[in-house]
């Protein structure tokens, strides 16, 4: 029983990690006021590119980094369209998703069925190994730990540094920020590209750690889940960590319960998505919009018109 719980903790973190990575990037992007609906496509691209690059270079780490860069490059398009050309962010993000998924199938189809060069190394935290449930936190791959640390660092940057202050201010009222002498364009541009890189990282985690290997549709809507996670976490990196792991666990629930459900197990596939809707509805009833709420200028191009 305890082992089951430990296993559950561990897989929740593992499956939550790509969600978290994508969500962290999107938190920064949305905090600066830009909505990026292209996460699903960026993750898909990262996933396929990671396998391809890891095989080509012989190193999964190189694969991961290159996948990251490629996704950032694609996100650059969204940045140009939304920030510089001030086009419609929603449709641009959708276009990005479509392009990303298309690109991923072009890149990945040559590698279907191959295991690629997965990340197999693992870090043991001996101190935790003896504690019953918490030992699930030990023995994860390095990227998972990296993600945890990153979440904390990103939280600190967002709320305790002047860089984070600029980002948050831009998301609330870009005209004020501009009047204070900062460049809204630069800030938004950078956060969007950063978000793209994180999404690429998230995708590469799926194919290099979780799966490993690529097949069409491997991302399976996790990019969209990440968007929901950003909202539940009310745009805070630390809360995103908790929510992402929660969702990771939810996704695993299906496999836990599957043997008891037979065909009905397919229905559980939709569970995370139903949950997103339910929580969105609940959150709106309790709108504490003043402190916790979407950045005011989210989705609105600046300067307007």
């Amino acid at each position: 029983m305890i082992e089951g719980v430990e296993w559950f903790v561990r897989t929740s973190i593992e499956y939550g990690t790509p969600l978290l990575l994508a969500a962290l990037g999107e938190v920064y992007s949305e905090r600066s006021g830009v909505l990026n609906l292209g996460l699903e496509g960026l993750m898909a691209l990262g996933a396929a590119a990671a396998v391809a690059f890891s095989i080509a270079t012989g190193s999964p780490w190189c694969g991961m980094v290159l996948a990251c860069l490629l996704a950032a490059l694609l996100a650059l398009v969204h940045a140009i369209v939304s920030v510089i050309l001030r086009g419609n962010q929603i449709v641009s993000g959708l276009a990005l998703t479509i392009i990303g998924i298309g690109l991923s199938s072009i890149v990945g189809s040559n590698y279907v069925g191959l295991r690629g060069n997965p990340i197999t190394s693992v870090i043991e935290i001996h101190a935790l190994n003896r504690i019953p449930v918490l030992s699930g936190l030990s023995g994860l791959d390095p990227v998972a730990y990296f993600t945890m640390v990153t979440a904390i660092v990103l939280w600190l940057v967002l709320f305790k540094t002047s860089v984070g202050l600029k980002i948050r201010a831009t998301g609330e009222d870009p005209s004020v920020v501009e009047a204070m002498g900062h460049s809204v364009r630069t800030i938004r541009f950078l956060t969007v590209v950063f978000g793209g890189a994180m999404a690429g990282l998230a995708g590469s985690y799926i194919t290099l750690v979780l799966s490993p290997g690529w097949y069409e549709g491997i991302v399976a809507g996790r990019g969209w889940l990440a968007l929901g996670i950003v909202i539940f976490a009310s745009w805070s990196p630390l809360r995103a960590l908790l929510v992402a792991y929660l969702f990771g666990g939810l996704m695993q629930l299906r496999f836990v319960l599957a043997p008891y459900l037979g065909v009905g197990g397919v229905l559980l596939k939709g569970l995370p998505y139903v949950l997103v809707i339910v929580i969105l509805a609940l959150l709106s009833v309790e709108s504490m919009r003043k402190k916790i709420g979407a950045p005011e200028s989210l989705g609105k191009p600046y300067p307007p018109g």
Binding site: L85, A95, I98, I99, G100, G102, S105, I106, E216
Partner: peptide, 19 residues
């Protein structure tokens, strides 16, 4: 060639409209 590759073309068309 995977059929979903055509999405690249479609996505770019959409992008063209947005731009």
């Amino acid at each position: 060639v995977p059929a979903s590759s055509i999405m690249v073309f479609e996505g770019m068309l959409l992008l063209a409209v947005v731009v």
